[in-house]
């Protein structure tokens, strides 16, 4: 073998060797699958929802009953059998669940995050963090069952006119469910605050309380807000707990009025499940209304996720 051959052999470019190409393309395809998923979600939801509305249905070549966009967005009645598809009652119920769960989870979540990041000893942290993970790991249908069977009767002893299915206990369990999410994202933001800021605070004579509330929380505010938005978007998309606990009667309620939490209502996700637990015939208007709600839900959660991302990025304090 001449030296030329040897050099060539040793400096072979391996980047485009068949083995490398093959593995690289496999990995690339895996990564692209996520884009395919998103695209198919968007295409599927929009085409099926387009078949639902009377404005767009002719474009899709669909004949048969349709619903008008205006009626869908402003209607106050959701009765499948009468083909009344007003989404407002569903949205109001979803909003009520979101607000109710926010009242439970946001303060508790932030307090947990402050405790874990500022006060807890390493040993306490190592016990509390897995316990919080368990909180998020319990299936949502189980939470729904807890709400109906244990929490509602317990609340009934305090509030006698509480319905069997009500928004109050549904909101409470959804709130408990999303505490870990608020806590872990906020805690990440708080631990990212550099120690020098805390030390500066102590140097000025601040107490631990002053440092936590006056320095750490403001410094990690963007992370805390993004955790709020993510957790609320999770609450909006939460399905089984509200399906089991909130009842199946669509009614328009005022989410800001505490009295409306005493009765049941039908959030968007629960409406979708109810549509399918009844007999679903592929291609009917009820089937397409499913995708119309799905699209509404997808757009709301997507926008919230993007906002959360932007908040976290734009307002992040760089240290």
């Amino acid at each position: 073998m001449s030296t030329d051959d040897l050099t060539q052999d040793l400096t072979r470019r391996t980047e485009n060797a068949p083995q490398e190409l093959l593995t690289r393309s496999f990995f690339f395809l895996c990564a692209v699958l996520s884009i395919v998923t998103t695209l198919s979600i968007i295409v599927l939801l929009t085409t099926e929802a387009a078949k639902f509305f009377s404005v767009t249905a002719p474009l899709m070549g669909v004949e048969g009953p349709t619903a008008s966009v205006v009626d869908f967005l402003t209607g106050t009645e959701w009765v499948i059998n009468n083909e009344q598809f007003g989404v407002l009652p569903l949205v109001s119920a979803t909003l009520a669940i979101t607000i109710g769960s926010a009242v439970v989870s946001l303060p508790l979540g932030v307090a947990t995050a402050i405790y874990l990041s500022e006060y807890a000893t390493p040993r306490a942290r190592s016990l509390l963090k897995p316990a919080l993970e368990v909180l998020a790991g319990v299936p949502t249908v189980v939470y729904g069952f807890f709400a109906v069977v244990y929490i509602t009767p317990a609340l009934k002893t305090i509030i006698p006119n509480l319905g069997t299915f009500n928004m109050l206990s549904a909101s409470i369990v959804v709130g408990i469910m999303i505490i870990p999410m608020v806590a872990s994202i906020s805690e990440d933001a708080m631990s990212a605050v550099p120690d020098s800021l805390r030390q500066a605070g102590y140097g000025m004579g601040a107490t631990k309380f002053d440092v936590s509330v006056g320095i750490v929380v403001p410094a990690s505010l963007s992370g805390i807000f993004s955790s709020f938005i993510l957790a609320l978007s999770r609450a909006i998309g939460e399905t089984m707990a509200v399906t089991v606990a909130a009842g199946s009667q669509a009614n328009l309620l005022n989410p800001l009025n505490p009295a409306s939490y005493l009765e049941g209502a039908l959030p968007m996700t629960a409406a979708m499940v109810n549509l399918l637990t009844g007999d679903i015939t592929g291609g009917g208007i009820a089937y397409r209304s499913l995708f119309a709600i799905g699209l509404t839900l997808f757009v709301i959660t997507l926008v919230m996720n993007i906002i959360s991302d932007l908040v976290a990025q734009r307002y992040r304090e760089e240290y």
Binding site: T38, S40, I41, I236, M272, L297, T301
Partner: peptide, 16 residues
């Protein structure tokens, strides 16, 4: 895209 997909509600995956 991946972090957004992680936030898509499970019912929507069911619809997919």
């Amino acid at each position: 895209n991946i972090s957004n997909l992680a936030g898509v509600p499970s019912v929507v995956y069911g619809l997919l």
